[in-house]
Amino acid sequence: MKAVFERTSGLIDRETHYCPGCTHGIIHRLVGEVLEELDALEQTVGVASVGCSVLSYHYFNCDMTQAAHGRAPAVATGLKRVLPKERLIFTYQGDGDLASIGMGEIVHAAARGENITVIFVNNAIYGMTGGQMAPTSLLGQKTATTPEGRAAQTQGLPIRVSEMLATLDGASYIERVSTHDVPHVIKAKKAIKKAFQNQKDEKGFSMVEILSTCPTNWGLNPEESMQWVKDEMVPYYPLGVYKDHSYKGDGV
């Protein structure tokens, strides 16, 4: 029988620790496939962040180093700046990690135009610590720390990271994608591939923001979670390309 779907060599074959219906797994697979297709696994060093994906180094079939909470872009900068330039460096960060405690690091990595690839998983919540509010939690969203729902007056408003980083001249490519259905997953993979290809082409800072689920902490089943991404998240976090130019190539 002809195999129609194979496990990517970009991931190590082991049991997942992610919850059922959590799209972290899908995103892992997309990154693994891209690295395989670019024949880049042996050239890549990934940086795991702190969040549910802290153990991502268990899965990615490449060298990995694990960073303190929020600091992955700084660690990636260190790696990128000292290794031969053919090496591809990526961070894999949640929204608490990247947009709250690590906001300084990501902004400055983008501003410097660090030639790295950032995989930014936005699930509008702190997954690992049990469902607290993230900077990306939506207005009205109930979390462990916003039991009455996030209110603008007290908790402020959600941050649209892609839009914000796109204002920085140093950022080269920024796109927001989603994982809530197959066509979107395919698009997400394209974006991820582009973000790595950009790094190969030395185009500078590339980030893909991926809307993702957290059924466990949203209190929804996997199917409802996909729907929630589509109905609640996508309207607030519009999908699309926010920045796509090479500041080096364009001579800006």
Partner: peptide
């Protein structure tokens, strides 16, 4: 904070 983490990366 960032400097020491760049050191960690390097």
């Amino acid at each position: 904070v960032s400097a020491i983490n760049m050191v960690y990366g390097a």
